[in-house]
Design a binder for these strands. Structure first.
Length: 256
DNA sequence: ATGGTAGTTTAACTA
């Protein structure tokens, strides 16, 4: 069972690339971030034609997440529970094909210090709290998406250039570790313990051409999901396509 | 120290 995550940076602008990739990779479940679309404007028909059920949590202009699945989608939850004052569409969760999936778009948090960084840290606190609840179900669980967290210095092309960035701050990394220490497994790192495995290249300064990337899109697995992990791949070549997103798809294969 | 790009939206924001 292939479960992918892909920050598309506008589903409208990226639809041809997304359809092309769906046909080639044929994932069973897909988590999309930054759809930048209202629910009613999501291009449902084109994606349903490829055999997917769809649940969206959209908003106008910014953010927005969606879940695609070839299996029935049950128990849909929009937004992190407890985070009731949050007006940004950054989380959708559901049970599908025997796996519970949380699709998340964690706040970027720049610049620091400031309101946006405070919001990021609060959002991470809510995520940790909810992850505890989900882990207690003791079922295969995948929390994946754009974390906007560079876990370690090896996950960025030039750590020195990111010293003042919200993606590498000690407070950011401390909360990410708090999440990991609950018992999650980083799917990519359990299969590839080190290396420049980037998932994002900025549109600016020729970042893609120079391979100046970041690893910020992750699949975190509950023990029950980690036990059945078969594979994890980054579809890096997608970044070189026409009108590409600044992120590429990452997928895991679970033996379920 | 600034600007470079992309998307949404049409001046300014987010990333």
């Amino acid at each position: 069972m292939k479960i992918a995550t892909f920050n598309v940076n506008s589903i409208k602008a990226r639809l041809p690339r997304v359809l092309e990739w769906l046909k080639e990779r044929n994932p069973d479940v897909v988590c999309l971030q930054e759809i930048k679309s209202l629910d009613e404007n999501f291009p449902r028909m084109e994606i349903e034609d490829l055999g997917y059920n769809i649940e969206t949590h959209g908003q106008k202009t910014y953010n927005g997440v969606a879940l695609l699945s070839k299996f029935p989608i049950e128990d849909v939850q929009r937004g992190l529970p407890e985070n009731t004052e949050d007006d940004q569409a950054r989380y959708i969760e559901a049970f599908t094909g025997g796996v519970r999936i949380g699709c998340l778009y964690l706040p970027n948090g720049n610049p620091i210090p400031g309101e946006k960084f405070d919001y990021k840290l609060r959002w991470m606190d809510h995520l940790v709290s909810h992850a505890k609840t989900l882990l207690a179900y003791e079922e295969p669980l995948v929390l994946c998406g754009d974390y906007n967290v560079i876990p370690k210095d090896e996950d960025v092309f030039d750590p020195a250039r990111f010293e003042g960035d919200a993606l590498t701050q000690p407070a950011t990394r401390a909360r990410y570790r708090e999440l990991m220490y609950l018992g999650f497994t980083d799917a990519l790192r359990v299969l590839r313990p080190s290396g420049a495995d980037y998932t994002f290249w900025d549109y600016q300064r020729g970042a893609w051409q120079k391979d100046n990337g970041l690893r910020i899109d992750h699949h975190l697995l509950s023990p029950q999901a980690a036990d059945i992990l078969k594979d994890c791949q980054i579809d890096k070549m997608v970044r070189g396509g026409e009108r590409a997103s600044d992120h590429v798809p990452i997928w895991i294969d679970l033996d379920i």
